[in-house]
Nucleic acid binder design. Sequence first.
RNA 1: GGUGCCAUAGCUCAGUUGGUAGAGCAAAGGACUGAAAAUCCUUGUGUCCCUCGUUCGAUUCGUGGUGGCACCA
Length: 294
Amino acid sequence: MKNRLLVLLGPTGVGKTALSLSLAKRFATVIVSSDARQVFREMKIGTAAPGEEELAAVPHYFIGNHSINEHYTAGKYELEALELLEKLFEQHKTILLVGGSGLYIDAVCNGIDDFPDTDLALRKNLMQHLETEGLDSLRFQLKQLDEATYQRIDLKNPQRILRALEVCIATGKPYSEWKTGVTKKRNFEIVKIGLTRPREELYTRINSRVIQMMNDGLLEEARKLYPYKGLTALKTVGYTELFDYFEGKTDLETAVQLIQQHSRNYAKKQLSYWARYKDIRWFEARFATCRKIV
RNA sequence: GGUGCCAUAGCUCAGUUGGUAGAGCAAAGGACUGAAAAUCCUUGUGUCCCUCGUUCGAUUCGUGGUGGCACCA
């Protein structure tokens, strides 16, 4: 019988962590996190990473195993996660993949294309270019280097254009030739479980969880990280708003309200990301128990 | 108590030389292959505070209210 990867996904604040613990116990297995921010050990409170008790109850992977100083990417995550899964499957028939980062989950389930490492210096250059010359100039460059991508991508999205360009320039090969979109075969079975809640309930939970984070010391955590605010990892809901507060751009109350608002927006965005996936079995978090799911 | 200013979308406000109105933010929906908690796109009908009047027609002008703000007593 094939090994099985049980994927538990859902928007922020829906209750993945709690359910994942009981599922892990039910299968006597471990949890592999699929969260693009919980991998950073410096950002515990603001990312609602599992706490000490939870980590002690079930072995977790990819929680705080990297530093914000690293340039971490979905590609690296795919490699590391697959290597880890291979080892873990030697001991467990079923493994839990739990998280809210759609792209990271896709990286494990379908794979993403093998691009060469990002050239950060080049990226910085291109960002400068964007500042001084404007988006049109980058668009024009992309049209020259990679017509296919130029036709396909969102030309109003600077990040997409920048990314395509940096690959073209760094490798001398069009981005569209790297990006095949081919689904990689996995030697394990994948079962996707989506957790959801009525919108209002989800939003209420998110709002109160933000208050809880503040009580748990988010302000202090953010203050410590403030000197590193330029890092990509810290472009994260819960930190950027408090950085604004430190800089006197908002008062604390407003900052907290914005964290709540942006967390709600994020949850909605996650839901629309998964809405197009046909292979997810959705469960109401209120009624989701191990027995029903398994 | 008097005088002046203001009252328009959930919020802040613009506007209509009188022909029932539009920005920003919020909100909702969407896209997504190494920054993904990122980045980007789409969506604006609301007793234009109430009353009476002038007018073919008033959210717009006038009278009187109500509420808010400011100044004078």
